[in-house]
């Protein structure tokens, strides 16, 4: 027994930031950002916390699922950019929903949504009935807004899904392989009088070239592996839903795998890279636009800090 997706939801802050808006304080331009990353706009929070966004996405997913909040017996959330180390975002959402199930967060950076599904599958195997999974990020909190190489890429938002016991999580592959120097997001350093190191700036630091190469290889390996292992041809897959890290990564993977670009669902132009939220936001858009029919096969593929990558075969 694994699960089936019952409903999806998403939320992004009201504030839209265009590439042109960024040129007011960064030495960059619209053409460079579009060509280099593929982002045109992103939503950047002014007041919403990651937990606020998680709650809104969760409410939308619950409404879409048709079950009531108190039928949920576990909330799993993922974030690397929440306001609080504790309580976990999942706990805040539980309180806001006014329900009494267990709730906790996991940290798997940009690969987190597939890690959430994989974790949920374990709980379904233990007999859980309905699980709410949420990826929520306020990436704008952890960016150096003077660094034009990273700040133009990311956006804020949350995506959620309600899962119910079923048989539609067909297969998965999860890999963790080191590389803390490739993507590094140092945490806040306190004021310990005993500390002898050099505190690092608590912002996203990324080696663009290494990340790019890792990401393209991760997508290519995972997709080939899942297709082969399940005796599937690419034309049996309705969509590949990749983590929206950079349009160039998706284009290169499409070229390397010789899979037409149309198979990849892409919305980075609108939202930027929303880390753990990117795949559930994409799923909710596809769901509400009527792009998915029951029985469609999807490949979700995620990669990021760890380094880690995780992909799964999901029947809608």
């Amino acid at each position: 027994m694994s699960f089936s997706v019952l409903g999806t939801g998403m939320y992004v802050p009201a504030n839209v930031v265009t590439n042109h808006d960024l040129t007011k304080f960064l030495d960059t331009n619209d053409e460079w950002i579009q060509q280099r990353v593929g982002v045109v706009t992103r939503y950047i929070s002014e007041t919403e916390t990651a937990a606020d966004m998680a709650y809104e996405a969760a409410k939308a997913a619950i409404e879409n699922s048709g079950i009531s909040a108190n039928q949920i017996d576990l909330i799993l959330a993922a974030s690397i950019s929440g306001e609080r180390v504790s309580p976990a975002i999942a706990c805040e959402v539980q309180e806001l929903l006014g329900i009494s199930c267990i709730a906790f967060d996991i940290n798997a950076a940009c690969s987190a949504f597939v890690f959430l599904l994989e974790t949920a599958a374990g709980f379904f195997a233990r007999g859980y009935r309905n699980i709410l999974v949420i990826g929520a990020e306020r990436m704008s909190r952890i960016l150096d807004w003077q660094d034009r190489n990273t700040s133009v890429i990311f956006g804020d938002g949350a995506g959620a899904a309600v899962l119910t016991a079923g048989k539609n999580y067909l297969d998965s592959t999860v890999t963790v392989r080191g590389g803390h120097d490739v993507i590094n997001i140092p945490n806040f350093m306190g004021n310990s009088p005993f500390f002898k190191g050099v505190p690092e700036a608590p912002y996203v630091q990324m080696n663009g070239q290494e990340t790019f190469k890792f990401a393209v290889n991760a997508i290519s390996q995972d997709i080939k592996h899942l297709l082969q292992k399940n005796n599937l041809e690419m034309d049996q897959i309705k969509y590949i839903v990749p983590h929206q890290a950079n349009k160039r990564i998706i284009d290169m993977a499409s070229m390397k795998l010789k899979i037409p670009a149309e198979k990849f669902y892409v919305n980075i132009q609108k939202y930027g890279n929303t880390s753990a939220a990117s795949i559930p936001i994409a799923l909710d858009e596809m769901n509400r636009q009527g792009l998915l029919q029951r029985g469609d096969l999807l490949l979700l593929t995620a990669f990021g800090g760890g380094l880690a990558h995780a992909s799964c075969l999901l029947r809608w």
């Binding site: 663009g208 070239q209 290494e210 790019f212 190469k213």
Partner: peptide, 22 residues
Amino acid sequence: DSLEVIELLMSMEEEFGTEIEL
């Protein structure tokens, strides 16, 4: 640009039939 350099490197991997870690 710097990402295109990696795209080139990845074509080189195919050309030379070996994985080239940075």
